[in-house]
Structure formats: C-alpha cells, structure tokens
Nucleic acid binder design. Structure first.
Length: 1012
RNA sequence: GCUCGAGUGGUGGAAUUGGUAGACACGUUGGACUUAAAAUCCAAUGGACAUUAGUCCGUAUGGGUUCAAGUCCCAUCUCGAGUACCA
C-alpha cells in the first residue's frame, strides 16, 4: 500500500469540514485554551511559503492541547481593510470590497489545503459591516470616557459632567489637553451647549484636535509614526511632511505608565517588550520654570532628567517653533532669529534627521534668570531642541550633556564645570553613577541621587519646579483620508461632533464613483453623494445633502457625516475578543463568552507589529477593562514572534558594458574618438546582453570597480568564435574589459544544483543574447538569501509544495527548518528529507500486502524508543522547540524500522504523537488501525519513565578534559568502584604511559576525567 | 550613537544545570537494484597527517575561570533587528 498523500489529505480535510471537527463551544466541562494567530491582510499575491510558518506552529500547539483534553479555540479571520485594495481601486475602478472578497477566497483555499484546525465558524473580517459595527461602537465608548488620574482608570464621561456641575473643574485630576481654563460649577451651568461640548472634547479619550501630523502628499493621507520608516512612508517610500490638520486622536498617553507596568506580567519576548518600553520612553526628572529677567517675566518651562546639574546651566535653548520666541527676541537679534527660523522650516524632517552633526542656532538677545543663583542666562534657539518633545525648551548644561557642550563650543558660550574631579576640556561628562556635584551651592559634594532629590525639594520651595515623569509616547492620530476603512459613526452639528446612537450602527461605507480625494482636497468620502445623517426620533438614515437641507428642521437630528475613516489598527485592536462571540448582533460579545474564554493563552505573529497593533491592542484592552467589559487588562498571556522565512534568490549575469584600454593611457588623443565608436558598436553588437554562467565568472580575474566588478574579456571569451570580429577590427582581447549586470531570475527556472533552464529563461526574458557556458549543458546562477517578494522572483508558492509533497510534508518541513523565532532561508530541495520520513513512517504500518501491524507484545527496546520520543516531543512542544521534535520523530522511526517493530501497542501511540504535526497521515493511520472518528481529541500518550531506566552507562573517559575512549559500566557502582574499573582498563594504562594521575574526577552517571 | 539578538561542517541546524561538539536532515562521493531513469537500500562525509591502530587542530578573534568551556567572565571583530538630536 502506497502513501498516497494527495488522496489522504483531501479525504481528511473534507471530513474535518463536514464534521466541524474543530468547532469550539462557548460552554464546556473542559478547561479552555485560546490559541490565536495574527490574522492576515488578504493581499492579491496570495500566500507564499513564509506566511504559514506561524500558523503551523500555533496549529501544532492547538492540536496538542486538544489531545491534552482542553477545549481549544483556534480562530482565523482577515484584516481586510487596507491600502493595497484601495490603490488597486484607484487604478482600476474595481470596488475594494470585490477585490478583497476575491483575495480572501484565494487565501481560504490556500489555508484549507495546509490542514489547519481553525474554527472557521468564528471567522471575522474587519471590512464586514457586521464586524466594524463593533469597531465603531468601541470608538463611541472611548468618546464617552475620560481618564481619572485619581482612580487611575477610564470612567464614564457622565461622572465628569456631574463633577463639573457640582464643583467646576479646579479639582479634576484628569488626563486632558494642557491649556484648559479653570471654571466653577456656576460657570459650567452658564456655558452654552456648544461651549460645554468644546470643554468635554478636551477630556474625552478620543478627541478632535488640530494636531501636527505626518502628511504624505503622494498617498494623500496622514501616517502614524510607526507607518514611517527613515522619514518616508513605509508603504511606497514617499516623502512625509509635517502639517496641521483637525484629526481624531486617541488619548493613549493616559495609559503610558500602565502599558509599561503591564509588560511585567505578560510572557512576551524580551526584544518586543524592550521596543515597547522604548516607544513609551519614560524618563524621570523634573520640570523647572525659568523666568525671563526682563519686566515681562515670561515663564519658560523645561523638562530635565538632571535637575542635579542645574548650577551648570549656562544657557537655555528653545525649539525654533517655540511660541515664546517671537515675544522675547530683542530688536537687534530679530533678523538673525527670523532668518534662522526660516532656514530650519525649509529643511524637511528627513534632512534634519540625516544631518545631525551640523550645529546651528541663533541668540534671541533675551536672558532668563537662574532660579537659585539669579544670574542671567542667555536664551538661544536651536533645532536640536524638538518642539514635539517635553516642553520644546531645555536648560542647557554643557558640562553634562554632549549636545549642549557642542552647542556651547560652537557659539562660544561658557562651560562651567560642576563635577568634582572631572576633566571637561574635551567632552561633556554624563556618567550619573560617578557624579559628585561641585560649584553648586547647596548641592556641593552630593552624589547624583541625593542631589536630584535636594534640587527638586529646593525648586518646590521656590515654586519653580517639581519632580515629573515624561513620556515619549504621543497620543495616536486616528483619522485617515482614505476610502477603504471604517467610517466614523459621527456627524457634525454646528462644528461639534455627535455620536450616532448604537441602534443605528453599523454606519456603512457609502458608495463613491472615485476613490481619490475630492478636488477641494477632502478625503474620498467627500465624493459620496449621500453622506448626511438624518434622524427623527428612532428613525435615522443616510441621505444626500440636498435631502437633508430640504427636510423639516423640527425634531430633526443629524448633519454632515465625518469624511475621514479609521486607521488600519482600529479593526485589529479588539478582534481577539470578538472571536469569542463573533455572531452576536446585540453586544460586542456576551458576558458568558467572555467569562469562559477570558483572554488569549498563546498568540503567535510577526515582530513587525511590536509598536503598532500590539501596543494599540493593549491600550484598547486596558480601556475595555476599565469600563468593566473584559475581565483581564492584558489580552494575551504569552506571545511568540515567529521569524521570517526568507527566499533564496537566483541571479543571472548579463554583459552590459565593454571598455577598451588604449595604449596612450590617460592622454586621450582626438583620433581615438572614431575608434572608440567602432569599438562600442562592435562590442554592443556581439556581447551586450549575453548571459554568462556563474561558474565561468567565479574563476576569472576581476577588478573591483565602483559599481561592482569589471571582468577581463580575455579570461572569459578568448576562444570564442564570436570574438573574431573584434580581433579582425584590430582590438586585442587582453585590453578589453566589461561590466556585468546582475539580474533576478525566477527561482522556478533553477534546479537544486543552481542550473538554469536556459530555454525557459530565454522565452521569459527579452534583451538577452546567447548564453556563454563554462560546461556544456550546465548554466549556473548565483544565489543569495533575501526577503521573499514578487519583484525578486524568489517566491515559493505553498500550492506547488502541497501538490508535490503534501501538506504534512510542508508542515513538517517548515518546522524542521529551524527554531520558530529565528529567520531562515527557504530551500525547497531539503523537503525530500521530511517527505522521506513520512514514507518511512507509512512503511512501519504497511507493506505491499497491506497492514503489517500485529498484536505482538512490544519489546523493551520498542518501549524505550516510544517513551523516549513521548518525553522529548512533549517537552519540545511545551518549549515551542518544534524543529527538534521533528528530528525526534525521525530518530524514532529510524529506530523502530531497524527494530522491525510491528506492534500495535507502539504504533498506535506513535500516530498520536505525530498527529499535531502531520494530522492527515495521523488520521489515516488511526483509521487504518481500526478506530473510528477523528484522532484529534484522543488523549496524548502518557510518558512512563520505567521504560527508560538504564542499568548501565557508557562513560566517556577523558584525559585532561579530552575524551579518549568510552567504557560501559553499571550505574550501581560507587565513585571508587568506577575509578578502580577505569584505572584497571588497559587503554587507561596505555594513555598514562606509566605516569601516575594527579587526580581522578568521577561524576557518576556522567563522566570520568583523569588529570595528570 | 544607544538598546536588543546572533556568530558551530559545503548548507539548514542539534548539543537539559559547564561533562563524549556536529544529533536530525540537505548536499556531495562511492556502491547495490534497473536496459535506463525515478524510487528504494547500503557505505563514507569537520579539517590536516597517517590510512592498521592512531595523532594533532577545530564552535568569529584574543585572554581568563575550571579537573572539564560552544555553554561562565573580560576585551575585540562581524552580521542582523529596533530606535534615534528624547533634554
């Protein structure tokens, strides 16, 4: 009986689908286990072999947990809003919903054939109105909440309103906008409704504000910080500029500390935690207020992490954009300051980042007064101070900060030394631990920590400062000028945003005739003919502006709807909770479902979401927790980042340019010009576009040129008949050199030995002349490891692998490649190893005549092999070391084959062990062994240590730490017995050659080492 | 620059608390079977010398701790990821 994987896999995939084998129930006697994958964006390109890696790992774990008796939820869905579908729509006019549905179909087909145990009955799609209804709903909850610092959690906005009407806002301790005027209860009641709404907006967790945003003109949208890489857009690499716009923002900064603290109680990879910690960027220090020393006494607030160095402050620096600059600049300095501001404004963010070394600034002519010494301190502006961080102003301590130091040197500002025994003639001194303060009045002689405390204490006494914690984390801009995203459930009345009532959700995306911004620069939704909200009582609908204007104003609610849509991360910030109760039309999820499933036990996905999705989701979860909607304030207990599977690109080499070395070297004579043209023409005619086999290039001389390598023609083509035309024209081979271009070539044209199928390649590509071989019949390409991508022609499609080797082989091989977290190159050739293993496994159960399995008693050896395997595989799965368990299976099958084992008592548990990894073959074996139903919930074999008990140990006998020979001894022997036995051995005597050992180390059960 | 991670055969990678380095595969070489190929099976495979036994060198480099180091400590180099005038 043959191992017919295609048939077996199709059979069981059908069985699982028909029997809903992996459907998880929300009520169960069993303990729950929630295994989650980061849901994919369904791109038009479909899956490549890199994509399923994490899904295979999580699937193995999910299947293992089912065998261990858990009620496992393993859902899957699609993050189906996004830019590519929209850009495709812009180009073709095709509605993104159609493209998206098609792509999802492809994804589903590809996923199904790999045999995942997903519970598809729980599928969600972020672009489905039934789903984004709840994204809109969460947005409304955020709008209706404020952050109370006293209770340290988000609360209903009604509690704030009642506090306003009883006590005003003076005693409110909230996370809110900075510049809110103080009002009394009486004031509050006297405010107009619009004024009240304006004030509340400054407190809400999602709020409308004019913010400076990253505007990408090419994409026509705002980008979040994590969507910008090296100053250009992550997608497309377009320029990004700063621009002021009215945008929805999320007050994530309210949660900065809790997001930081929460990291301690979740089992997530350290690098990911580090990057979140970094992103949140907590720094502890003090806020200090300086005053200008003129009559105006303008306050200048700065943030510093080193209040202990305050006596070293010899100047202040403001960001050029700082609002005070215009007010304090003196008449004499006005032109210099304005010139400088103009110059920095012209420089893009990118230029400023690229050019950190250049120190620039201008003196305002104004002075501040030192809080303690009362000395005048010159106030400068400089673009090394960022308007967006802290207060946009710093106290500059050149002796303690290198940037201040460089600035002071450049502009010849004094650099007072306030450190004991430190030389600052070359550079600033920033080592906190070694700091002893000097020349600082009451701080003299103190170490860093004490000096900080005392400085803050004295500042507080003066009323000019206090201890403060600053975060780098900014509020997150939540508006995008896009079509293909969630519409905001918001309409405007008199310029103030109003939330749609829950019963009117979802507010569906309107139809538009084009997906670009409007001519007046409004977002794409501005193209919608019907995009006004019209409501009377319980009846509400979306209408045209005209219909709205013609409707009766009496009892009418509504207005123009919001034109922005939500960003990509909106839909992914709660999807893991929605999976628990995905079809609930009345609630985002029922309390019962949430009480049962609680949180994610294992989350697997890529590390690229470290500061995007994974931070925003934690924020939303904490908010939902505060509002009593979820029982846990962290949504995922454990997270693993799978590594990337990289491609192995293939390159061919094509002759691009020829050069001739003229005898007169540098002195080009006029008569060379026509010669040169003849040469160029001839060379291009004969050689340009020729392919060269890589093994030919490898072995010849080349010069390292600026753009790569320049090869000598003589080495490569001396004997070629092609070249005679050049010699006939009087050119010598040895003086001819040429450069090559390296071109990606589709990996499917290349075999395992790096031989190119030349015929296929020639018909695929143009601009190619005949290939030049090193060995006839073998044209070599070079290979390099790169990210898998269409443009590099190195994409390997899982469909091909599945049809050639089967899904089980693909699953095993992806795991076998290496540790899950590590990135590793794909090489299809290696899959024959695991495929061969599956065939060998099959042959343990079947030969040409059918089943070989017997009821024979297993031998001790059989049992040892089995239980060794159970132990190792179980440990490996628990440690997510899936690559080593594949090796373990191979060893096990190799051993059982050698033992000629046919015992059902061994082979039945073996099928179970393999089942999480290679579920199709396991199901088939299980059935062939006479069982009915799916193997998927059968108990995992239990490890019994008694089968591994050994009486003997093969000891390695070392001399001075080097193993020389082994010796089998009983494990019952005492240390002395072992030593005696070893010393008596003839090889020991041979090694010692008459010497007496100085020392003999005996570690029973491990090793013997003889020193001397 | 800062933070984190990693350097082991031709390749992917094993190696539990320091205790036989290179498991398991791929690839390569030789052989069996076959008209041939595929498939399958057997043997060899870190390097050098010797090829009968054996000897020496080997986990990026240089030191150190230890009876014993891929593993621990110090320094250096290289690569990768993240982040960046963050005061």
């Amino acid at each position: 009986m043959q191992y017919n994987f295609n048939e077996i896999e199709a059979k069981w995939q059908k069985y699982w689908a028909e029997n809903q084998t992996f459907k998880a129930e929300n009520t169960s006697e069993k303990k729950k286990f929630y295994v989650l994958d980061m849901f994919p964006y369904p791109s038009g390109a479909g899956l490549h072999v890199g994509h399923p890696l994490g899904y295979i790992a999580s699937d193995i774990y999910a299947r293992y947990k089912r065998h261990k008796g858990f009620n496992v939820m393993h859902p899957q869905g699609y993050d189906s809003f996004g830019l590519p579908a929209e850009q495709y729509a812009i180009q073709t006019g095709q509605h993104p919903a159609i493209t998206t549905a098609e792509n999802i179909k492809t994804y589903r087909r590809q996923l199904d054939q790999i045999g995942f145990s997903f519970d598809w009955s729980r599928e969600v799609r972020t672009s489905d109105p039934k789903y984004y209804k709840w994204t809109q709903w969460v947005f409304i909850q955020l709008f209706n909440s404020w952050y109370n610092k006293d209770s340290d959690k988000a609360e209903d906005i009604e509690t704030l309103i009642s506090m306003f009407s009883s006590d005003g806002n003076a005693n409110i301790n909230a996370v809110c906008d900075d510049d809110i005027a103080v009002f009394s209860a009486a004031d509050w009641k006297a405010f107009s409704s619009k004024e009240q709404q304006e004030i509340l907006l400054q407190y809400r967790l999602t709020y409308l504000a004019e913010t400076e945003v990253n505007w990408c003109p090419a994409l026509g949208t705002v980008l979040a910080n994590d969507e910008i890489v090296n100053g250009v857009s992550e997608r497309g690499g377009h320029a990004v500029v700063r621009k002021k716009m009215t945008q929805w923002s999320m007050r994530i900064s309210a949660y900065a500390q809790r997001l930081l603290d929460g990291l301690n109680k979740i089992d997530w990879p350290q690098p990911l935690k580090d990057s979140q910690t970094n992103w949140i960027g907590r720094s502890q220090g003090a806020s200090v207020t300086f005053y200008t020393n003129d009559d105006e006494r303008h306050p200048i607030e700065v943030f510093t992490t080193r209040p202990d160095t305050i006596f070293g402050a010899s100047f202040m620096t403001l960001a050029p954009e700082h609002e005070l600059v215009a007010k304090i600049t003196t008449a004499e300095q006005k032109s210099a300051v304005e010139g400088y501001i103009e110059a920095t404004a012209k420089r893009s963010e990118r230029e400023r980042m690229a050019d950190v070394k250049t120190i620039s600034g201008a003196f305002t002519g104004a002075y501040a007064e030192h809080p303690f010494s009362k000395n005048p301190i010159p106030i400068w502006i400089g673009d090394y101070v960022l308007a967006g961080y802290g207060t946009g102003a710093v106290m500059s301590v050149p002796c303690g900060d290198q940037r201040d130091y460089d600035f002071a040197k450049k502009f010849d500002i004094s650099i007072p030394n306030i450190f004991e025994g430190v030389d600052i003639s070359e550079e600033a001194f920033a080592d906190k631990e070694k700091t002893i303060i000097a020349n600082s009045d009451f701080l003299d002689g103190l170490k860093y920590k004490k000096a900080v405390k005392l400085a803050i204490y004295e500042l507080e006494k003066l009323g000019q400062g206090e201890g403060k914690i600053n975060y780098r984390l900014r509020d997150a801009v939540f508006s995008r000028q896009r079509y293909w995203g969630e519409p905001f459930p918001v309409y405007y009345v008199d310029g103030m945003p109003q939330m749609l009532d829950k019963k009117f959700l979802p507010l569906a995306l309107p139809e538009v005739d084009k997906y670009l911004p409007t001519e007046t620069g409004e977002p794409p939704l501005g193209n919608a003919k019907e995009w006004h909200w019209l409501q009377y009582g319980n009846e509400g609908k979306v209408v045209s502006e005209e219909e709205f204007n013609n409707s009766s104003p009496s009892g009418r609610l509504g207005g123009a709807l919001e034109l922005n849509t939500m960003p990509g991360w909106a839909g992914s910030s709660q999807y893991f909770n929605r999976y628990m109760d995905p079809h609930n039309a009345d609630e985002i999820f029922s309390k019962e479902a949430m009480d049962y499933w609680q949180d994610v036990d294992l989350y697997i996905g890529g590390s690229e979401h470290a500061t995007g999705h994974l931070l925003y989701s934690r924020f939303w979860q904490k908010f939902m927790f505060d509002r009593g909607l979820v029982p846990k304030d962290e949504f995922a207990k454990k997270l693993i980042n799978q590594g990337m599977i990289t491609g192995t690109s293939a390159f061919i080499f094509r002759i691009s340019e020829g050069y001739y070395k003229w005898d007169n070297g540098l002195h080009l004579m006029d008569d060379i010009q026509p010669q040169l043209e003849i040469f160029d023409k001839l060379f291009d005619d004969i050689y340009k576009g020729c392919l060269i086999s890589f093994d030919k290039l490898e072995n010849c001389d080349c010069y390292e040129g600026v753009d790569g390598s320049i090869y000598k023609l003589g080495d490569i083509l001396k004997d070629s008949e092609m070249s005679s035309r050049l010699t006939k024209a009087g050119f010598e081979y040895k003086k001819i050199t040429f450069s090559i271009s390296k071109i990606h070539t589709p990996v499917e044209f290349v075999d395992n030995q790096n031989n190119l199928d030349v015929a296929k390649f020639m018909s695929w590509s143009n601009n190619i002349k005949q290939p030049i071989y090193n060995h006839p019949d073998s044209f070599k390409v070079s290979r390099e490891v790169e990210k898998m991508s269409k443009s590099k022609y190195n994409v390997v499609n899982p469909d091909d692998i599945v049809s050639d080797y089967g899904a089980d082989s693909l699953r095993l091989y992806e795991m076998f490649l290496g540790p899950l977290e590590q990135s590793k190159p794909w090489n299809t050739a290696g899959i024959t190893g695991v495929h061969g293993f599956l065939k060998k496994l099959w042959k343990l159960y079947f030969d040409d005549n059918g089943s070989k399995v017997t009821d024979a008693e297993p031998s001790a050896e059989n049992l040892k092999t089995l239980h060794k395997t159970i132990k190792k595989v179980e440990e490996d799965i628990e440690n997510f070391s899936f690559n080593t368990s594949v090796s373990t299976f191979m060893i096990c099958v190799n051993e059982l084959t050698a033992q000629k084992c046919t015992s059902k008592a061994i082979l039945e548990p073996l099928a179970l062990l393999v089942s999480p990894y290679a579920p199709h073959i396991a199901e088939e074996l299980w059935e062939q062994l006479g069982n009915t139903g799916s193997i998927s919930t059968i108990d995992f074999p239990i490890f019994e240590p008694k089968h591994l008990v050994e009486s003997n140990k093969v000891y390695p006998i070392s001399f001075n730490g080097k193993m020389k020979f082994t010796m089998e001894l009983s494990l019952d022997l005492s240390k002395d017995d072992i030593e005696a036995a070893v010393m008596a051995h003839e090889k020991t005597q041979q090694q010692l050659a008459g010497r007496t050992p100085k020392k003999v180390i005996v570690v029973p059960g491990k090793i013997v080492n003889i020193v001397g």
